[in-house]
């Protein structure tokens, strides 16, 4: 379970401040975060992942207090437990799809890159129907294929939490449907927690819970 309590977070030299009393996400649930731009939805995902720490308040994930962890511990925790899916995919242009999928293994010693990992990547690519695109560079892929590679990268290490920041924002309706289906199937199958920031209201019925950020936002 992810729990954020009495949160207050602001960026240095910026007027913006994200403040709320309580927000929690049960394990295995699919939550959609909606709300106007500039309300701190992406910041929330960064707080959950431990990239940022709130100036005030407490963040716990499965009873683990993120505030008490060092930066390196938070990084390892993020790498092992959280999968990120971005709106603009954030694939590295100089790596092939396979190398992009295996990127988490190459940038941190916590994950060991071995044949098992490679097989897992190939299996996942096959599940997402991009098995014949593994040697291709991102520029040679369609938008939908790029997002599938990004999803593979997010899920390759079997995370218990998936944070998706407008994952369908750059996709056509057909691909949007496919991508969300993949994410939901994965979450249902693995029992992972999915927190998705979205502006796409057509998708909302698919989620277990919808959090309207405008309503929880506490203006200081």
């Amino acid at each position: 379970m992810i729990r954020l309590t009495d949160i207050s977070f602001g960026y240095p030299n910026a007027d913006f401040r994200l403040q709320f009393d309580e927000l929690s996400f049960d394990t295995g649930t699919k939550t959609a975060i909606i709300g106007p731009s500039g309300f701190g939805k992406t910041t929330l995902l960064n707080l959950i992942s431990g990239i940022y720490l709130p100036q005030l308040g407490k963040i716990t994930i499965d009873e683990k207090n993120l505030n008490s962890l060092s930066e390196s511990e938070r990084r390892s925790f993020r790498l092992l437990n959280i999968g990120f899916v971005f709106q603009d995919f954030k694939l590295l242009d100089y790596l092939t799809s396979m190398d992009n999928i295996l990127l988490p293994y190459r940038i941190n010693k916590v994950l060991k890159l071995n044949n098992e990992a490679r097989k897992q990547a190939a299996k996942m690519a096959s599940m997402l129907h991009i098995e014949n695109k593994l040697s291709k560079y991102p520029q040679k892929l369609s938008q939908g294929e790029r997002q599938r590679v990004a999803i593979c990268r997010a899920l390759i290490h079997d995370p218990s939490i998936i944070l998706a920041d407008e994952p369908t924002g750059n996709l056509d309706p057909e691909n949007r449907e496919i991508i969300m289906k993949i994410l939901f199937e994965y979450v249902n199958h693995k029992g992972s927690t999915l927190v998705t920031v979205t502006h796409d209201h057509e998708l909302l019925p698919e989620f277990d819970r919808i959090v309207d950020f405008k309503k929880i936002y506490k203006n200081s």
């Binding site: 990084r75 993020r78 790498l79 954030k90």
Partner: peptide, 20 residues
């Protein structure tokens, strides 16, 4: 900047990025 941010978000340390 974006590439570095992606690596950092996924779980790379600053030191690792400097190393690369």
């Amino acid at each position: 900047k974006h590439e570095i941010y992606t690596m950092y978000t996924i779980g790379s340390s600053r030191l690792k990025i400097v190393e690369i």
